[in-house]
């Protein structure tokens, strides 16, 4: 297993700092994005930046790189969440009584 002590601190810690810089840059991008680019699609742009950050954290901080079994299980979980989203989105988009619904238009 990976209970080795052969990890060399000096050669590895630079990687952590590099990822940190990347994440900081992306966080900065998060802040300037609404005024700079894709201004009409802030929500999508923000989520894409978030996804990139998440990917970096998963791969480098959480050591998911090379973990085939765990990676596959993670993909399966995310797939399920995606399915829940898709089905609910289909349902909501085709809801035929939206016009008479109480909750879609405020009561007052």
């Amino acid at each position: 297993m990976d209970t080795n002590t052969n990890v060399n601190y000096k050669s590895e810690y630079a990687g952590y700092w590099k990822v940190l810089v990347g994440l900081l840059v992306l966080t900065a991008v998060t802040f300037v994005q609404p005024g700079m680019f894709l201004t009409d699609y802030t929500f999508a742009a923000q989520l894409i930046i978030g996804a990139i950050k998440a990917w970096m954290i998963l791969m480098y901080y959480m050591h998911l790189k090379g973990e085939k079994l765990i990676g596959a299980m993670g993909v399966f979980s995310l797939f399920l969440v995606a399915v829940f989203f898709i089905i609910v989105i289909i349902d909501v988009n085709n809801f035929q009584f939206g016009d008479v619904s109480h909750i879609t238009s405020p009561a007052k």
């Binding site: 399915v83 089905i87 349902d91 909501v92 085709n94 809801f95 009584f97």
Partner: peptide
């Protein structure tokens, strides 16, 4: 089994397509 939960909601106000 994960994909069939909606059959409990036929009369609850779901869209016909769903």
């Amino acid at each position: 089994g994960y994909l069939v939960w909606g059959h409990h909601l036929y009369t609850s106000g779901m869209s016909d397509l769903a």
